[in-house]
Write a protein that binds this DNA or RNA. Structure first.
Lengths: 339, 339
DNA sequence: ATTTTTTACTTAATCGTTTAAACACTATAT
DNA sequence: ATATAGTGTTTAAACGATTAAGTAAAAAAT
C-alpha cells in the first residue's frame, strides 16, 4: 500500500505546522484564530492530496473509536442478519461503525470475540449472550464498558437489555391453538437455560395449564444437532398412540427444520398437525399452507438497542439500567386452525 | 468507561520501563535478553491487572490493522449474510476482524463506506461492487489498497475477483428448460449493467437462440421496486395471448418475489408455469413444488476471496491479478418439468 | 589489571492525531 | 512612549504501543 497522506504531508506541502492543518480541517479556525487565506490554501491542498484522516490515530488520542461491537449467535441466520442490518443503519446515522462476530451459541467463542473487540477499543457492545456467558457480561459491567443485551438477558445480572416479551408471545400463541380446539399441543424448543427460551416454554406451559384437560409436551433439542434431534422427537410424537395435533416452534430455525421434516414424511399441515412458528421467514410464505407465526419486533429491538447504547457511551455513569421488553404480535394464518 | 490498563501501568506497578514490558508480553525475551525473574513478574502483573493491549496503538505503530472491510449490497439478504459468515470465519482463522457495510446497490453509499473504512485503516477490502462504482474501484487500485471483488466485477478494470461462472449457469438452466420441452421461457432479471446480471441474461439468450423455434423474453426490474415491477411484468406475460410456460429468475430475491406473486394469483408451478431459481433459500424447500435452482458456490467464493485478499495484503505488489470464476451446479427438482 | 564481551535493562524516537501553551508580531489604548 | 490586547502561528506533550540504540554493570578473556 503506497504510504498514506498524513497531516504532516499537507503541512510540509503548504509550509505550516501540523497544528494549523489540524485546526483548519477540524473547522476550529475560529477558536484557533487561523488566517483566512492560509486556511483556504490548506483546505485546497488537503483535497488535492486526497487526504483521509487516520481514524486510528484520532481514536487513540480521543479515547473514542466510534465503533460498536456486535455479537450474535450467527450472522447468517436471517433473524440476526436482519437485526444486524438495522443496527448498521442506526449506527451509521450516529457516525458509528459496526464490527461483528458470530458466537455460535458458544461461550468460549463469545469470550474470545469480546476480548478481540475490547482490544480494538470498541466504544460499546450489543450482544445476544450465549448460555454460560454470565462471567463475560459481569466482566463488561465491572470494566464499565457500555453494552446492551438483545434477544436474551440474565435476570440475575442488572444490565441494559432489549428483548421480546417472550412469555406473553408464547402464551398467546398457545392460547390461540387451544381456542382453535387443539388438544395435544407440543412445543419444540432449544435445550437452553437462556431466558428467552425459558420464558417461551413457561408461557406455553402456563397457557396449557389454564385448561385442565390439556397436558404440556415440551421437546428440547440441541443447537448443535437440531436436524436429527427434531426428526426424532417430532417423529415419535406423531407416531405415538395418542399423536400430537399441534406444534409450536420456539424459533425460526426450529420451525424450518421441523417443517422440512414434516414435508419429508408427508405429514400435512394443518390436517395431520397444526403449526405455529416463531419469527418471520420468507420460507413461511412459501409453505403450501400459510403459516401462523409470532412476529417479533426486530427493527424496534435493534433501534432501541443502538439508542440505549449510544446514550450510555455518551454518559456511562447511571444508576439505573434500561430494560425494555417489546411486545410481539401473532399473525394468524391457516396453519393453526382445523381445516 | 474506567481507564484501561496500559503498558505504562504495568511498568509502573513492577518498577521497570514500558520497553521491557512490551518485550516480555510480545515474547521477545530472547532477542531483548530480558531477565527470567523479572519476565515472570511482568507476566504475572499483566494477568493480575487484566491487561488487554490497545490494538489501535499497535496498528498505528505497525501500519497494519488486521481488519478487513466487507461491502455487500445488503447484509440482511441471506445470499450476502452467508458469504459474510464464511468471510468472518476465514478471517478469524488468520487473526483478522471484519467490519461490514451495506451499499444497497447504491454507488454513493458504497463510496461513503469505502471512505469510512479507509479512514479506519482496514488492510483490505472484499466488495460486491455496485453499478457505477468503477471510479471507486479505480481509486482503490491507484491507492494500492488490496481488494477482491466478489459476485460481480468490471471487465474494463483489471482487478482480483471471485465470482460464479454466470453465463454458464444461466445457459445451463435455460437448456434444461428447453430440453424439458418448454417453449415460451421468460427470464426475470434486475435492470443492471453489472456483469453478473449481463452474463446471466446473455447465457439465457444464447441458450434460447440455439433453438431456432424459441424467442428470448427478458424482463428487467428495478432493485428499488422489485415487488411491484415483478407483479406487473409476470402478470402481463401470463395474461398474454401466448402466455409464457416457464420462468427463470436471476437471483434469490427475484425468485422469492416472483413466487410470492404466483402464489397470490394462484398460478400453479409447474402446471401453469415452470420455474428455475438462482441461489439457495430455505424458502425454496417449502414451496409446494420442489424448486429447481442454480446453486452458487457461496462458501468457495468467500473462502477464496479471503485467501486472495490476505495474500495481497502480505505481498501487495504483483503484476497479475487473481481472477476466479467458480462453476455452479443446477439442482433439478420438480418445478422445471411438465407434470 | 585491563580490555572485551555479555547481560539486563533504559532512553528516546516513532506512528498520526489533538490541543494547551508559548511565541512573535501588529494594533489599540493609556 | 509604553503597557495591553488581539492576531496568526509554532512548539511540544500526549494517546499506547514498538524497537533501535544507548548504558551500566557483571562476567569472561587477555
Amino acid at each position: 500500500m503506497s504510504k498514506k497522506v498524513s497531516l504532516k504531508d499537507i503541512a510540509k506541502a503548504v509550509g505550516v505546522s501540523t497544528a494549523l492543518v489540524s485546526y483548519v480541517l477540524n473547522n476550529k479556525e475560529k477558536e484557533a484564530r487561523v488566517g483566512k487565506d492560509i486556511a483556504a490554501v490548506i483546505r485546497k491542498k488537503a483535497v488535492e492530496l486526497h487526504y483521509q484522516p487516520n481514524q486510528l490515530a484520532k481514536s487513540l488520542k480521543s479515547g473514542k473509536s466510534f465503533t460498536i461491537g456486535l455479537i450474535v449467535a450467527d450472522i447468517s441466520n436471517p433473524f440476526f442478519a436482519n437485526i444486524a442490518r438495522t443496527i448498521e443503519d442506526e449506527a451509521k446515522k450516529n457516525n458509528y461503525t459496526v464490527i461483528f462476530g458470530s458466537s455460535d451459541e458458544n461461550a468460549e467463542k463469545s469470550l474470545d470475540l469480546i476480548e478481540v473487540l475490547v482490544k480494538r477499543q470498541v466504544d460499546g457492545f450489543i450482544i445476544a449472550p450465549t448460555e454460560g456467558s454470565e462471567e463475560q457480561i459481569n466482566y463488561l459491567k465491572r470494566s464499565n464498558i457500555p453494552f446492551v443485551l438483545i434477544d436474551r438477558y440474565f435476570p440475575s445480572i442488572q444490565t441494559n437489555y432489549v428483548a421480546t416479551a417472550n412469555f406473553q408471545a408464547a402464551s398467546q400463541a398457545t392460547r390461540h391453538l387451544i381456542a382453535n380446539g387443539f388438544k395435544r399441543i407440543a412445543m419444540i424448543a432449544y435445550k437452553s437455560k437462556l431466558i428467552h427460551m425459558r420464558e417461551r416454554i413457561d408461557g406455553y406451559r402456563t397457557a396449557i395449564k389454564e385448561n385442565g384437560a390439556l397436558k404440556p409436551i415440551v421437546q428440547e433439542v440441541n443447537y448443535s444437532s437440531v436436524g436429527s434431534d427434531i426428526q426424532e422427537k417430532i417423529g415419535k410424537m406423531l407416531a405415538a398412540k395418542q399423536p400430537i395435533d399441534a406444534l409450536l416452534f420456539a424459533t425460526n430455525t426450529l420451525s424450518i427444520h421441523g417443517l422440512k421434516y414434516l414435508n419429508s414424511k408427508h405429514f400435512k399441515v394443518p390436517e395431520d398437525v397444526a403449526v405455529v412458528c416463531f419469527d418471520e421467514s420468507d420460507a413461511f410464505d412459501f409453505f403450501y399452507c400459510p403459516l401462523t407465526y409470532v412476529k417479533q419486533p426486530l427493527v424496534e429491538v435493534a433501534q432501541q438497542a443502538v439508542t440505549i447504547l449510544i446514550d450510555r457511551i455518551n454518559q456511562p455513569i447511571r444508576e439505573t439500567e434500561e430494560q425494555v421488553l417489546l411486545t410481539s404480535s401473532l399473525v394468524v394464518k391457516a396453519s393453526s386452525s382445523h381445516p
